[in-house]
Design a protein around this nucleic acid. Structure first.
Length: 646
RNA sequence: GCUUCUGUGGCUCAAUGGCAGAGCAGCUCAUUCGUAAUGAGCAGGUUGUCAGUUCGAUUCUGACCAGAAGCUCCA
């Protein structure tokens, strides 16, 4: 007999050699039916794992993150089985669970159109109905390789060859006629995947390398119950309505033009207003914190980019003007760094000058590949709240913290703070092509950043190979409405470019030294930030950021003069206000103002004109009662000043 | 750049190898109205662009342009 500690510290006895699944069964049929995987002494395991000694056991269901992963992973096997039944020539590669569902990559001559996807989905549902038990077995690497060779699964053979060196057996999962190389864990049988849907077919490179063959990736999602699938699909419909690329165009924040080109959005008056408000806020706040504004050229000779390393490392991403081989070649700047360094180099510097903080509202140009552009998130010309901070090694930690605090303050003010996560982006020592500097330099820079992040007790994940070519980064990440993650803000430590540019300072001991440089942005790129704010607020911006804050709506033409008086008063206090004096019914005008997501509508009629009041309609609430014009103004001025979000 | 898909008035969507249609928005007129759509009329399109097939192409084919999802890349 062995003792198994279950959830809540309960200890039960079982015969040695019992499987986790059998234990789940003994605990109740509900748990048995819901079980997806388990954790034995904290380690994620397959339910088929036999238990031979005392342990702590946790049964994982679809409600647990890892249980869900196992469920989706099995769903991807069902997908692969269905494809092999319908298209035996398709070759298997890999098919994991992802953040929201699963995918499987196939190498197939036939392209999987939407019609084919429907057929595959129908076949998957058959496999679910068949309730095939899923069995696990393992083979030594050479036998595993033979098995996959006999089935013509060349990609699997490749994967096994990589594992062979580890002298571990290779595990397989078998459901009916379908056998798949896989580490697991998997759920007990195919019958549990009650609700599933294939959502897309796209291309994906084998092993994520653009030099390899492009495979066909089928995405899907599955749930335990149909109702959950329906709710998920409805949630996606809702997300679509908030998508900045749709809503931002509908609400006229931006547009694009075929004759201007890809990745070059036209920011319309409403979008431009929001960006202006953000920019003023950023520049004022930075000034308070000791940043010195520069304005540097949008282009430069190739010389400057040769010194910085961009010419070698980044040329494909730059817009080069003139023959790239000639000495006269110019390029639009993809970064601000080397330009602000020239400001530092304007005269000789001493430790007394440091830290030196340069900021700039900087427009950059990057020749992104044609498939990369997306709304306002990825564009070819963008404007960033840029800054470079030059300091001594002793000042680095405090200054880094200052940059981070500024970014956090910005995020809190615009209301995005709750939505971000941190990524410590390191270099990839295996990919020396991509980076300048020596391993020693990288170890040092990354060590410094690691120490700072740990001192700040920041909760971050590590991104290997995500560093800039000259140094490690702290990236502040955010997800869009579709759950896709992007970098909003980045703070980087650089100890290489100062040397390249000959930037020095005279220290207290009279010695010339290279300073550290922090590259940072405080609120990110205005286009991208605008996109995320549109999605965050579904276009209904907080009062201080709203392109139009107040609309005065007279009930009839009779009230025009009073409405104009109210409007002028609002404008004299700096409100962005307008007057809807069309001869339409009140309901019609309010409907339009609501759809335009204007925070406040002020209805004025006989009563208001007589009493010097306004009837206040709040976008999010409806009619909130009558106020004296002065009262409304003083209340809302206070809201704007404190940048309230409600 | 790669894979798959899409492109019909400002927007949402019909239709067809043989004269391209509706709603909303726009304009005009009437209506002067109390918290999310007043009525009538008018105007608006070389069906993304350029070729090809055809007696005839918006429809079929190709290239290009733009858009979407994903991959790769990246702020």
């Amino acid at each position: 007999m062995l003792k198994v500690e279950l959830k809540g510290g309960v200890i039960k006895e079982f015969d040695s050699g019992i499987s986790a699944l059998e234990i789940a069964k003994s605990l109740g049929s509900g748990l048995f039916k819901a079980a997806c995987a388990c954790r034995i002494n904290g380690e994620l395991c397959d339910l088929r794992t036999l238990i031979n000694e005392d342990c702590a056991l946790e049964i994982l269901t679809f409600e647990d993150e890892d249980g869900k992963k196992a469920f989706w992973h099995t769903s991807s096997h069902i997908l692969a089985q269905a494809v092999k039944r319908l298209y035996p020539a398709a070759k298997l590669t890999i098919g994991p669970a992802v953040a929201s569902g699963f995918y499987y990559d196939f190498d197939s001559e036939i392209s999987f159109t939407n019609d084919i996807l429907e057929k595959i989905e129908a076949e998957m549902k058959k496999i679910v109905k068949e309730e095939l038990p899923i069995e696990r077995f393992s083979l030594p690497a050479d036998e595993a390789s033979e098995l996959m060779k006999s089935k013509g699964e060349t990609y699997k053979v490749e994967l096994i060859a990589e594992h062979a060196g580890k002298s571990e057996d290779i595990s397989f999962y078998k459901q009916g006629e379908f056998t798949e190389l896989c580490a697991g864990p998997h759920i007990p049988d195919t019958g549990r995947v009650k609700a599933l849907k294939l959502t897309a077919c796209t291309g994906a490179y084998w092993r994520g390398d653009a030099n390899n063959k492009m495979l066909q990736r089928i995405y899907g999602i599955s749930f335990v119950k149909q109702a959950e699938l329906d709710a998920h699909l409805e949630m996606l419909e809702e997300a679509k309505k908030r998508d900045h690329n749709k809503l931002g165009r509908e609400l006229e924040f931006f547009t694009t033009s075929e004759v201007i080109g890809q990745g070059l959005p036209i920011i319309l008056p409403k979008g431009a207003r929001v960006i202006q408000l953000l920019q003023r806020f950023v520049e004022d706040e930075e000034q308070k914190r000791g940043w010195l504004l520069t304005k540097t050229p949008y282009m430069g000779k190739s010389d400057i980019f040769k010194i910085s390393g961009h010419w070698d490392h980044y040329r494909d991403g730059m817009f080069v003007l003139g023959d790239p081989e000639s000495d006269e070649a110019m390029a639009l700047r993809p970064m601000t760094c080397p330009f602000q360094y020239q400001a530092y180099l304007n005269r000789s510097r001493s430790y007394r000058d440091l830290p030196l903080r340069y900021n700039e509202t900087s427009t950059l140009f990057r020749n992104e590949a044609s498939g990369e552009m997306h709304g306002l998130i990825r564009v070819r010309q963008f404007t960033i709240s840029e800054g470079h901070l030059i300091c001594t090694p002793e000042q680095l930690e405090k200054e880094f913290e200052g940059c981070l605090n500024l970014a956090i303050m910005m995020l809190k003010t615009v209301g995005l703070y709750e939505d971000v996560s941190y990524r410590f982006s390191k270099w990839d020592p295996e990919d020396r092509e991509k980076y300048i500097g020596t391993p020693e330099q990288w170890d040092e820079a990354q060590g410094v950043m690691q120490r700072i992040l740990d001192d700040l007790r920041l909760d971050y994940k590590v991104g290997v190979g995500e560093a800039a070519f000259y140094g490690p980064k702290l990236d502040i990440q955010i997800k869009n409405v579709w759950g896709k993650e992007d970098t909003l803000i980045t703070i980087q430590i650089d100890q290489m470019l100062a040397e390249k540019f000959g930037m020095e300072y005279t220290d207290t001991d009279g010695a010339k030294k290279n300073p550290y440089i922090i590259h940072r942005t405080s609120i990110g790129c205005y286009e991208r930030t605008l996109a995320l704010l549109i999605e965050k607020y579904a276009g209904a911006f907080p009062l201080w950021l709203a392109p139009e804050q107040v609309r005065v709506v007279p009930i009839s033409d009779k009230h025009h003069d009073y409405a104009v008086a109210v409007l002028e008063k609002l404008e004299s206090f700096g409100f962005r206000a307008s007057l809807d004096d069309r001869s339409e019914k009140l309901g019609y005008k309010l409907r339009e103002a609501q759809l335009e997501k204007i925070p406040y509508m002020l209805v004025v009629g006989d009563k208001e004109a007589e009493e010097g009041t306004v009837s206040v309609r709040k976008r999010s609430v409806g009619d909130v009662g009558v106020l004296k014009v002065e009262e409304f103004i003083s209340q809302k001025l206070a809201d704007v000043a404190s940048k309230v979000i409600d």
